[in-house]
């Protein structure tokens, strides 16, 4: 009881919005479990994954998967591992070589489990070995140099650059482009998105990356959460329009309700 007396009232607005968001998501997850006709728009970058892995299989070359440079406490990394799981299943199914170099040690440990489990679930544990997912270094540019070296020396047919990236995004994407690989990138880092759009064949922009796991699994519950998220976005859009009109006409200050403290 003592803990609840210390509720931060300055964050009450955030709490109400948090509850509203959770309610919408959970309601749509529940609704999705009973309905099978949920429409989710096509995401070109995710549809291209099968084609990209197929290309590597046909060429007899490897698939390079870069899960970004952040640790596992970053949402983008978790989203990236969901895509990695799908890619690993495909490489296991088609007996295609997969290479996952890592910068962060916790991401490395998680990626290894993800890939191992994907090979087991695909019924090909014999194809898995520990060198598929390997650690490189904790230094950003040393990691970049190593991955760029893999791209130019070993010429993977397909490069996935999915996760959280910083200054190395363009170095990697341009090197991959020069090596002639088909490239699928995805990040929510605003500053890095233009680089990926310029240098990659497909780019998952922001929310598309977070939706990847749900989109690829086609699990109704997960797709329901995307639907709930879209409805929240519509409400946010409505609030922006109403807020803009109210501020322009001087009626009231709606932004005050949303101000973070």
């Amino acid at each position: 009881m003592e803990g609840f007396l210390h509720f931060n009232l300055q964050r009450a607005n955030a709490f109400v919005l948090f509850l509203l968001f959770c309610t919408l998501i959970l309601w749509f997850i529940r609704a999705a479990r009973t309905r099978q006709d949920l429409f989710i728009r096509k995401i070109a970058g995710l549809n291209a994954i099968d084609e990209a892995v197929g290309r590597a299989t046909e060429l007899g070359r490897k698939v390079l998967y870069v899960p970004g440079i952040s640790s596992i406490d970053e949402n983008q990394t978790i989203a990236s591992l969901a895509v990695l799981s799908h890619v690993a299943r495909m490489t296991a199914r088609y007996n295609t070589e997969l290479d996952v170099p890592n910068k962060d040690p916790l991401t490395f440990a998680s990626a290894r489990e993800t890939v191992k489990e994907a090979y087991i679930q695909e019924g090909r544990p014999d194809l898995y070995n520990d060198s598929i997912v390997h650690y490189v270094t904790y230094d950003q540019f040393a990691y970049t140099a190593s991955v760029a070296g893999i791209m130019m020396r070993e010429r993977p047919a397909t490069n996935f650059l999915i996760g959280s990236f910083a200054a190395e995004s363009l170095l990697l994407a341009e090197t991959g482009q020069a090596s002639g690989a088909i490239q699928i990138a995805g990040t929510a880092e605003i500053a890095q998105l233009p680089f990926f759009v310029c240098a990659c064949d497909y780019t998952l922009i922001g929310e598309e990356l977070y939706a990847a796991g749900a989109y690829l699994s086609r699990d109704p519950a997960m797709l329901g959460s995307i639907k709930g998220q879209d409805w929240t976005k519509a409400l946010v859009g409505l609030a922006i329009i109403v807020g803009t009109l109210a501020a322009t006409t001087g009626l009231f200050d709606l932004a005050r309700l949303f101000r973070a403290r």
Partner: peptide, 11 residues
Amino acid sequence: AALGAASLSLR
């Protein structure tokens, strides 16, 4: 992206 991240976190 922020809503996507929140939705993913919840999942």
